[in-house]
């Protein structure tokens, strides 16, 4: 047999090596893994869908932005009106209420000077 014949025989044998091939079988736990993946996908889908619908549909994006702006405007306006109310109260009344608050909650700062005063009494 010449070298070429030998190579041709090897090629034929190689091509015929899969003639009686059997089907490869999947691992027995495949369905369990697949189920886990489908469940994981379903649980993450809700947030993904929400985010994607918000970012993709312009109407939703505009609506979200409007809500955001309205909330900010409302917060700023209540802050401003609170400040105005505080400004209308006379200064002496403000100080008196502040002092009573400090006394109620014992927030006065005790100093060495205070201690000396107490011991002298």
């Amino acid at each position: 047999m010449t070298s070429n014949d030998f190579i041709n025989k090897q090629i034929d044998d190689t091509l015929n090596s899969i003639n009686d091939i059997q089907r490869a079988e999947m691992s027995p736990f495949f369905y369990t893994k697949l189920q886990a993946r489908l469940q994981q996908q379903n649980s993450s889908n809700f947030w993904e869908n929400l985010l994607s619908s918000l970012s993709v549909k312009p109407a939703y994006t505009v609506a979200v932005l409007m809500v955001f702006v309205i909330l900010n405007v409302a917060a700023i306006s209540t802050l401003v009106s609170d400040n105005n109310l505080n400004n209308n109260i006379p200064k002496s009344a403000q100080e008196a209420s502040l002092q009573s608050f400090v006394q109620d909650y014992n927030l006065s700062v005790s100093t060495i000077y205070n201690n000396d005063k107490k011991s002298a009494q």
Partner: peptide, 12 residues
């Protein structure tokens, strides 16, 4: 390939 017979394993 797991479906190939042992005799043809290397050639396959």
């Amino acid at each position: 390939h797991p479906g190939v017979s042992l005799a043809n394993k290397e050639q396959a």
